[in-house]
Design a protein around this nucleic acid. Structure first.
Lengths: 201, 201
DNA sequence: GTTTGCATGTAACGAACGTTACATGTAACG
DNA sequence: CGTTACATGTAACGTTCGTTACATGCAAAC
């Protein structure tokens, strides 16, 4: 059992959550963790191995935390987007999500460096979103829009820290979607049409 | 007249648009521009001065290009968000916008390095958005949401390059907002701010 | 013709980078 | 006790970083 490596990984995650990926350097990191660059290479093999361990731990944390949320809330029947938002901006998840988005950004310009750490494709959200959407909104355009709303607001939250304004904007979006569904139910009995729809249900 | 410095700045911009900010290094840059690191420092004073010149040029380009768009489209009467989107994903602006968003990202983690180059606050879009929104939608939540939709879809466009899907999602958002306004007009006789409405979303 | 000032080339500086070689400690196991 | 395997410290490797010192070219100004 490599308790030392696991200890280091945990501390490494904390360091990354605070300092971010692009400015990561072995010696300052080692100093902060109370060890040496030598030991980091010893335990993780290389800087890339170190990043891989950190990204794995980040993904594991996000996956399990999100799964716990899904299990807890799946039974209920309203506003999954709002739960997801509340979960994402909660203190224990926010830094992880921030780091995750940072990874996505880095992967755009330096895919050979950071693309490795993107598990699955960035569209993993798409299927997740569709799974939680009401049937009559479960088309690609609506799912893409919903994800974009989440992404845009989350990044605005990251940039400004204005939780109140971003959350209010999200609620406005939810309100818009619900109004549209009600309006649709009142005026027509058929499910909606779409502009350029690849996949609807 | 420093034609040499201006030439270098133009070439520098092209290089930055392609390679991005975080991996910028003087020697590879100089090699690509057919000059030397020595000359870059000579002309721009320092790497920071070089970045400042580039960011100034980028801001100037975005500002003038956006102003041209506004002048051309202000007279018409529909869907400024859609114009803005088409403008942003147009070939001659896309890389600039991408670089601009990249700068915003970098500034979050390293404000002392990149925050300098953020002219004005990141909420500059907010006022711009409100200016173009119909009067009865001109509240902060709606403006924040609209910007988030734009940001989220643009970054999705950057990450995936899927112009069709992201544009369809934007159209869906516009449709949602218009439906909501129609619904509001039908159910209540008075809009929130009874005012002349000249533009759509 | 000499001086002045901008532009450029060569070479190096000191620092930081990821990584490695090598020796040493320590504790379990035979 | 001796071996073995993991853990750690010291020191350096070679490279790249931004930056600088110094010399030189070259055109205009005096």
């Amino acid at each position: 059992m490599q308790t030392r490596k696991e200890e280091l990984t945990a501390a490494l995650i904390d360091y990354l959550l605070e300092h971010g990926l692009p400015e990561l350097s072995l010696r300052p990191l080692a100093a902060a963790l109370g060890t040496s660059a030598r030991l980091l290479i010893y335990h993780f093999g290389s800087k890339e191995g170190l990043l891989a361990a950190a990204m794995d731990a980040m993904h594991a944390h996000l996956r399990s935390s999100l799964q716990a949320l899904a299990d807890a809330k799946m039974a209920a029947a309203a506003k999954p987007l709002r739960w997801f938002w509340d979960w994402a901006i909660a203190a224990e998840n926010f830094a992880y999500m921030k780091l995750f988005y940072e990874l996505q950004m880095m992967a755009v310009r330096q895919p050979e460096t950071y693309g490795t750490f993107l598990q699955g494709n960035s569209l993993g959200w798409l299927e997740l979103a569709k799974r939680f959407m009401p049937d009559d909104d479960r088309d690609t355009a609506m799912a893409s829009l919903t994800i974009a709303v989440f992404d845009g607001l989350f990044l605005e939250m990251v940039a400004t820290g204005d939780c109140q304004r971003t959350t209010a904007a999200l609620d406005r979006y939810i309100e818009l979607v619900e109004q549209a569904r009600l309006h649709r139910a009142n005026t027509t009995s058929k499910p909606r049409h779409a502009s350029t729809r690849k996949q609807g249900t």
